[in-house]
Amino acid sequence: MSTVMSEPPPPLRAGLLAGRKGLVLGVVNQRSIAWGIARRLAAEGAELGFTYRARSAGQWLEKSLPRLAADGAPAPYLGHCDVLEDGAMDRVCAEFAELHGAVDFVVHAVAHADKDELAGGLAGTSRQGFTQAMESSVYSLIGLAGAVRPYLSPDSSLLTLSYLGAERVCHGYNVLGVAKAALESAARYLAAELGPAGTRVNVLSAGPVRTLATFGLPNFAASMAQRAARSPLGRPVTPQDIAGTALYLLSDLSSGTTGETVYVDAGYHVMGTWPGDVGHA
């Protein structure tokens, strides 16, 4: 009498980021692009740390972070960090590295401009408003790179978030468009500077999704619908689309990619004219 041997179960999938440890800056609430990215990274085995600026964001994160930790694992690191405050980024990077020994990746999702500055057009931007937008959106990446550099592992990755307004005129984006252009340039320079040590620096330029930040932009809902209809894929971008590309850029799948701006906008940025445009070629 023969014995039927059952096949062994397939091995458990470890995840693309199993054993990798990284910081996420810029989560405000559950609508944040950074939160969608963090959830995807945690699902792939990453051990995460978070920073916050506003007290409300810190309180929300404190309640939400335990859901990201594996059973039996400690809750993710959480630290207050105002990127406009000298020494704040140095402190949180040192605290995270002390807990984990090294930093394998960083997600920089920090940008800010006062809504009154955005409403006034670029020519109406005040010196103070311009300085705040540049310090919040651009220097925060530069300062973060310097603060985390001593703790980066040899195959580490830095990722920052941008928008099409960095290279094209997007109505209402104004000084933030100028700041995002500078951010993308800064990322390229950092990629060249940190590359010899094995660190990659890339930019993810995301299409419009509904976040807290977009409430300050005029006609956002109408613009989002129009862009979805005019994109090659004919649909809006989802947080899952963005998180999947972030995972690629932070994992070994993109080991040969640095200094790049990768668009996740359903292809909208490739278009120059559309059917029905007067005089389109």
Rank of each mutant, 00 (worst) to 15 (best):
M1C: 07
T3D: 06
M5Q: 12
P11G: 05
A14E: 13
A14G: 10
G19K: 09
R20V: 06
K21W: 00
L25M: 14
L25N: 04
L25W: 02
G26P: 06
Q30M: 04
S32R: 05
S32L: 11
G36C: 03
A38V: 11
R39D: 03
R40H: 06
R40P: 02
L41I: 05
A43Y: 02
G45K: 12
E47P: 00
G49V: 11
G49D: 13
R55Y: 01
Q59V: 12
K63F: 00
R67V: 13
A70F: 01
A75M: 06
A75L: 02
P76V: 14
P76K: 09
L78A: 06
L78H: 06
H80F: 11
L84C: 13
D86A: 15
A88K: 01
D90F: 00
V92Q: 06
A97D: 07
E98C: 08
A102G: 06
V103Q: 07
V107W: 02
V110L: 04
A113M: 05
G120W: 04
G121W: 06
A123Q: 13
Y139Q: 15
S140N: 07
A145D: 08
G146E: 13
R149W: 12
L152Q: 11
S153C: 02
S157H: 06
L158N: 07
L158M: 14
L159W: 03
L159M: 09
L161Q: 02
L161P: 11
S162Q: 09
S162V: 09
L164I: 14
L164F: 06
A166P: 10
A179Y: 10
E184K: 07
R188W: 11
L194I: 08
G195H: 03
V201E: 04
A206K: 09
G207Y: 08
V209A: 09
R210C: 05
T211Q: 10
T211Y: 07
T214R: 07
A221G: 08
A222S: 10
A222H: 01
A225R: 14
A225E: 15
A229E: 15
S231N: 08
L233S: 10
Q240N: 05
D241A: 03
D241Q: 04
A243S: 15
A243E: 09
A246I: 10
L247K: 05
Y248T: 11
Y248E: 00
L249I: 02
L249Q: 03
L253T: 02
T258W: 04
Y263M: 13
A266Q: 15
M271I: 09
V278T: 12
